[in-house]
Amino acid sequence: MIKKIIFIASAVILIGVSIYIIYINSHLKPHENLDVPYEEVNKGVIDIEVEAVKSITENISSPIEIAALIKEMGVPFNRDFLAPTDYVSNYSTNYAQAFALGVFSADLGYLNMYNKTGSVIDYLTTIKNLADAINVGQYFDFATLKRLASNSSNVDSLKYISVHSFNQIDQNLRQRKRGNLSALIIAGAWLEGIYITIQVSKIKPDPKLLEKIGEQKIILSDLMTLLASYAKDPIFKNYVNEFNSIKAKFDEVQITYEQGEPVTVVENGMMTVVQKDRSIVHITTQQLNDISQTVELIRNRLIRQ
C-alpha cells in the first residue's frame, strides 16, 4: 500500500516537473544564462515588428563580399588585421559577447577566403565559446567546422557551414526576441569588415577599396536604424553612441546615382542581368582619413571592453 502511494505521488510529481520543463523550454529559453538580467536587456526596447527589423538587417553586410574584394586586390594575408582573441574572457555582458561574435565572424570570413584553415581553429573555438555564452552554441556546428578546418581542401564546406551557422544564430536570436543581441552581432561584423578594408587600403589604396569604404555610408544608415531601436537601454546606448560617431564621419561622403536600363543575357541556360543604374561614391582623402581614424579608435576600444 505504502509502495503504491509512493509510486502515485512520484508519478504526479514527475509529470508536473515534466510539464514545467517543457513549458520552460518552449517559452523561457531565451531568458536563460543572460549575464544581464532579461528584464534589463529588454528595458526600453521599442516593440518594432520582427518583419520590419528583418527587412532592414537581411545580409546587411557580408564578410564574404569584402574578403573576396580584398583577396582580389592581391594584398597578402595579414594576421595583424584580425582582432585578438585574448580579451574574450574579459567580456562581462552578453552585449560584449554578441558584439565580439560579430567581429570574429568577419575575421573568420577573412581567414576562410585566404584558405588559412590552420589559423581558423583558434577563431572557431573563440566563436563557439561566445555562442555558448549567449546561449546559441547549439547552432554553431563546431565539431564539423573543426574537422573541416583540419584539411584545406574542405574550404568550400567550411565557408558554407560557417556562414550558415551564423545565419541560424541570427535567425534564432530574432525569433526568440533577442534581436538586440542579433543587432550587435551584425554591428560587430560590419565594423570588423570595414576595419580590415581600411587596413588593406592603407597598403593598396585601390579606387575599388576606397569606393567600398565610402559606400558603407548606405549600409551604416540601415544599421543605425536597427541599433537606434534598442537605444533606450543604457548599456546598448553606448554602442549606439560609438556607431553614431562613425556615422558622423560618413555623413560628409557624397553618393550620386546614374540611371540606366538593365541588360539581360542568357548564355548556356544561365540568365545574367547586368544593372546599368550606378551608384558613385565621392570621398575625399580627408574624409577617408577621418573615417579611418574613427573606425580604428572605436573598433579597438570595443573589442577590449
Binding site: 548606405i218 546615382y257 541556360g269 544561365m270 540568365m271 545574367t272 542581368v273 547586368v274 544593372q275 550606378r278
Partner: peptide
C-alpha cells in the same frame, strides 16, 4: 524597378537561377 525574374510570362520559360551584376549599392 524589376531587374530579374525566374519566370517569363510571355514565353512561359522558367529558370532555377539568375545572376545579377550589381552596380548600385543598396
Amino acid at each position: 524597378k524589376l531587374y530579374a525574374s525566374t519566370y517569363n510570362p510571355q514565353t512561359g520559360q522558367t529558370f532555377q537561377s539568375f545572376n545579377f551584376q550589381c552596380q548600385k549599392t543598396g
